[in-house]
Amino acid sequence: MKIELTGKTAVVTGSSSGIGLAIASGLAECGARTIVNGRKQDAVDSAIERIKSRVPNADVLGIACDLGTLSGVEAVVKEAPETDILVNNMGFFGPGDILSTADADWERYFQVNVMSGVRMTRAYLAGMMKRRWGRIVFISSESGVAIPPDMLAYGFTKTAQLSISRGVAKFAANSGVTVNSVLPGPTLSEGALEMVSATAKAEGKTSEQVLNDFVVKTRGSSIIRRATTTEEVANMVVYVCSPQASATTGAALRVEGGIVDSIS
């Protein structure tokens, strides 16, 4: 199966590094005109260079802005008023239980992880439906199903994405637009590797080894017994964005190595 996206435009939020960068690279490799987003211009420029080193003929545009704000969303839409593919990847994570997470932290999680995707979807969905083709993907997490008590606000936002994705898919019924969620588990992204770097140094291990140990110790139901790679997550997303995935919509697709202990 060859995925061909030539002639399509794809917007990938939060794509200057990690899973988002892997997704943007995968879409560009399939021929899509790909719009990379991050908060800082130097990070966006670096991401474009990394994509072009992998895909020399890639058609890539960078837009630096904070999509956790309405003005940031408006800036992207001004530069790219239409898109065929929208990947709502932007988000952040961190520790925090019910007692330690302040109101301001809850609000920031909500604005960045949830409202960015709501606003971007609202900006592009009508055009997709009018053109009778479109793909929208929310990058959720296994933490949206197996809520971590020590990352409660993060888990809450990932559950919210599942609800929003399913509801938008039903709203767009019979329009040619599909809307899905993809649920990674612990992933070997730059952010995750940096988060455990101090532990890795103290234990005399690589950050990858520490993350893999983390999966085994804290995600006992994992079947692959390791963290996933950003490319493994991106492969699922690229497929969901393809013409071949036309009958997949309203779904929560897991790329977490079997952590969620369910057959459905």
Rank of each mutant, 00 (worst) to 15 (best):
T121L: 04
Y124K: 01
I136S: 09
L125A: 05
L125V: 01
I139N: 10
R122H: 15
R131W: 03
M129C: 11
S143G: 15
I136F: 12
R122V: 08
F138Q: 14
I139M: 15
M120R: 00
K130N: 11
V145A: 04
S141V: 06
M120F: 03
M115C: 10
R119G: 00
M129G: 04
W133C: 08
R132H: 14
E142I: 11
V145L: 07
Y124C: 00
E142D: 13
R131F: 05
F138T: 11
I136P: 09
R119D: 05
A123P: 01
S143H: 13
R119N: 04
R132K: 15
L125C: 02
G117H: 02
E142C: 13
M120Q: 02
S143D: 15
S116V: 09
G117K: 04
K130G: 01
R131Y: 04
I139E: 06
S140G: 06
M129V: 06
A123C: 04
R119S: 02
S141K: 03
G127W: 02
Y124M: 02
G127N: 03
V145T: 12
R135D: 12
M129A: 11
M128C: 07
S140Q: 07
V137S: 13
L125K: 01
M120C: 07
I136M: 11
G117N: 10
W133H: 08
R131I: 03
R131A: 15
F138M: 15
S140M: 07
I139T: 14
I139H: 07
G134M: 09
K130Q: 14
E142N: 14
E142P: 03
L125Y: 01
S143A: 15
M128W: 04
K130F: 00
M115A: 03
T121F: 08
I139W: 08
V137K: 12
A123M: 02
M115N: 12
W133N: 09
S143E: 14
I139Q: 05
R122D: 12
R132F: 07
L125E: 00
L125M: 05
W133K: 10
R131M: 09
L125D: 01
Y124T: 00
G134R: 03
G117W: 03
W133D: 06
G127C: 03
R135N: 13
G117R: 04
R135I: 11
S141R: 03
V118K: 09
F138W: 14
G117Q: 07
G144F: 05
R119P: 02
R135P: 12
G144D: 05
R132W: 08
G144P: 07
K130T: 13
E142W: 07
R131K: 15
S143C: 15
R131S: 14
M115Y: 06
V137W: 09
Y124W: 02
A126H: 08
S140Y: 03
S141T: 05
F138A: 13
V145C: 02
R135T: 10
R122C: 08
A123I: 08
V145E: 04
S143V: 14
M120P: 01
G117V: 05
F138H: 15
T121A: 07
V118T: 13
V137F: 10
G127D: 00
A126P: 00
V118H: 11
A123K: 00
R122P: 08
A126S: 12
F138R: 11
E142Y: 10
G117T: 04
T121G: 10
G127H: 02
R131D: 14
G127E: 00
M128D: 01
G127P: 01
T121E: 05
V145N: 01
